[in-house]
Design a protein around this nucleic acid. Structure first.
Lengths: 172, 172
DNA sequence: CCGAGAAATTTAACATGTTAATCATCGACT
DNA sequence: AGTCGATGATTAACATGTTAAATTTCTCGG
């Protein structure tokens, strides 16, 4: 009579620990890195996300908000608020699209460009500090792996976070 | 008269591109990974952060909220709200500390434990899917690098995000 | 040219991130 | 016992993450 199913004997399935869970490990690493950058952004009176927007506009120039959201890794609603704030503080400008007036084109203002020019050296020195602590070669190794991971997990050639494309509308 | 300083001639310092900026690269990688897990949490009617709390309580049992916040990588204010919600939905229980009545001890309820038991296999299969796409050996390599990065950047042996420890009090 | 559907953006609603401030309790010292 | 500084936790205030819904404009077929 010892043939009971082991179901009730082990009702505690294993979960991966902090060093072996990919979401947790990536969260921890990013936290560790951002601990170095956050105080700097703070000092400049700007948030990390606002910096991401300014950074993209600096690197790539004027673009519509849809593309900007993708490039800055922000969701459209977040970007909408951020653009409004950055426009109010004169860091960016916006104008309606030329051919398509639905879209709004955003670009960096002179004040925004000046800000980038001012803070870029500090960001670079933080990067160097991190590289010095972790090892420049391992930074390269890590960056390569992260890039490969993203490519391996990407659903399609361009489908970013728009998996909701086919939302089952068998309409009509 | 052609001896002007080159300052105005190159007012555009370089910024690292998306694949070479550590904050951006980590953000992208985490986004790619979470795209796999998010729909699952969604389906269970729980948020990612709520899962992190439940996960820690499942792995380590009852603990006070301060420690729980550290283990779940949440800030105390966020955890305060999450615990309130999880208590309302009966996933967790709480009771005042025994020796120190300032702290509140949180633990997983039977309902919470049952939920973990139910979803754990799905999470594991997602992990396996990711490992299959990226390569199990490279996952290991990446996890090791992330762990080493975190250790290399950690300020002290235990000082997590509590750098505000020494707030200038040249005490006694 | 008109109307139905698609697309770009914004707004809404709720949860979390982030820093600062508040509240209650503990601990040590007098 | 009384007080002051430290500590655990929460609340406040504002910005962002996230999904859904609303808005405006475009496009295309009729």
């Amino acid at each position: 009579m010892t043939d009971r199913k082991p179901v009730a004997d082990f009702p505690r399935p294993r979960l991966k620990d902090d060093t072996r869970s990919l979401p947790i490990a990536l969260l921890r690493a990013r936290e560790a890195v951002m601990a170095y950058f956050r105080p700097h952004h703070r000092k400049g009176g700007i948030t990390e996300q606002q910096w991401r927007v300014i950074r993209v506009l600096y690197l790539e120039g004027e673009m519509e908000t849809g593309r900007l959201a993708q490039r800055a890794w922000l969701l459209a609603p977040s970007l909408s608020r951020i653009v409004k704030d950055l426009e109010a503080t004169k860091y960016i400008r916006r104008r309606p699209g030329e051919s398509d007036s639905r879209q709004s084109l955003v670009s960096l203002s002179p004040k925004g460009t000046a800000m980038v020019t001012r803070v870029a050296p500090f960001l670079d020195s933080i990067h160097q500090d991190i590289a010095r602590r972790f090892g420049p070669d391992r930074i390269e190794e890590l960056l390569a792996l992260l890039d490969q991971l993203e490519r391996a997990l990407a659903p399609g050639p361009d489908a970013r976070r728009a998996i909701k494309k086919e939302n089952g509308r068998a309409r009509k």
